[in-house]
């Protein structure tokens, strides 16, 4: 009997406690939201990128095929015409885009408030705060045990922000085993304890025409062109033969400056 009484007492306390927690004013109607798809199309100049089999050349007449083109996109912000913006939450703002994986090139940003959007901003790479978090907070696209396994420097803890790997074209009858690949692995979030290279780059793209996101649309999409050739061209013309490998060296900042300009909006769909 005593036990029952004490149980009832606990129940009473619980009921009172939760009754107090109940909001006093009626809930504000939730903002209507919807999803925007972002599609990344990979190019070399004006041609869609085809891995391994198609020959390309840069503006200094060096010929190559592309084996790999991967990069991280993170910290996405969508700006409205009224000046307000929607910041994609930290738990869903990291994406690894791979040219070998079609699905990775289509990302969906959910729960975006409806409205008139005119601009997108994002980071190429992974911010320093997330880079320094424990592995348990680096999941999904950042999981170095799965998706991000080949986008991580184990000798200098941190993500490789962008990888471009190409092969020179061997003339017929030439020795392909002697071919030296062109390898560009760019990373560096600035260092935890000591300052070092910071190759994090921000991209801001104006839509040109507005994206009017309405509640029941299923077609809202931003189509973005990513031109892999611009990794190697722009403010610095990369000579493939003189700099066939670039990883964590001061020169890598030039490549980051180049690829900061590799994105452009090709299409806005309401």
């Amino acid at each position: 009997m005593k036990a029952l009484k004490s149980k009832l007492f606990v129940l009473l306390i619980t009921v009172v406690f939760f009754a107090q927690c109940k909001p006093e004013s009626p809930a504000v109607p939730a903002t209507q939201t919807n999803t925007i798809a972002i599609k990344f199309n990979h190019y070399i100049a004006d041609s869609l990128l085809v891995l391994n089999t198609v020959n390309y050349s840069n503006s200094i007449e060096q010929n190559f095929t592309v084996d790999k083109f991967n990069y991280f996109i993170s910290n996405i912000i969508l700006e409205k015409t009224d000046g307000t913006s929607y910041i994609v939450p930290q738990d869903s703002c990291y994406f690894l885009i791979k040219s070998s994986n079609k699905a990775s090139q289509n990302i969906n940003i959910k729960n975006i408030p409806v409205g008139n959007y005119c601009k997108i901003s994002f980071m190429i790479g992974v911010d320093s705060a997330r880079s320094c978090m424990p592995a348990s907070a680096r999941t999904g696209a950042l999981n170095v045990g799965a998706a991000a396994a080949d986008m991580y420097w184990t000798w200098n803890t941190g993500y490789i922000f962008l990888k471009l790997q190409c092969m020179p074209i061997i003339p017929k009858g030439g020795d392909s085993s002697a071919a030296i690949p062109y390898v560009y692995h760019i990373g560096g979030y600035g260092g935890l304890n000591n300052p070092t290279l910071n190759n994090i780059r921000l991209v801001h793209l104006n839509f040109g025409e507005n994206l009017n996101l309405i509640a029941n649309s299923t077609t809202a999409q931003i189509t973005i062109k990513a031109d892999a050739l611009k990794v190697l061209e722009g403010s610095t013309q990369v000579d493939l033969n003189n700099t066939p490998t670039v990883m964590l060296t001061p020169y890598s900042a030039n490549i980051a400056n180049n690829y900061q300009n590799m994105f452009s909006i090709t299409h806005i769909t309401n």
Binding site: C132, P134, A135, V144, Y152, W153, T154, N156, T157, N193
Partner: peptide, 13 residues
């Protein structure tokens, strides 16, 4: 060279 800043990130090396 101190390239790894956390013990948990050492084994993968």
């Amino acid at each position: 060279d101190g390239g790894i800043f956390h013990l948990d990130e050492f084994p993968i090396n």
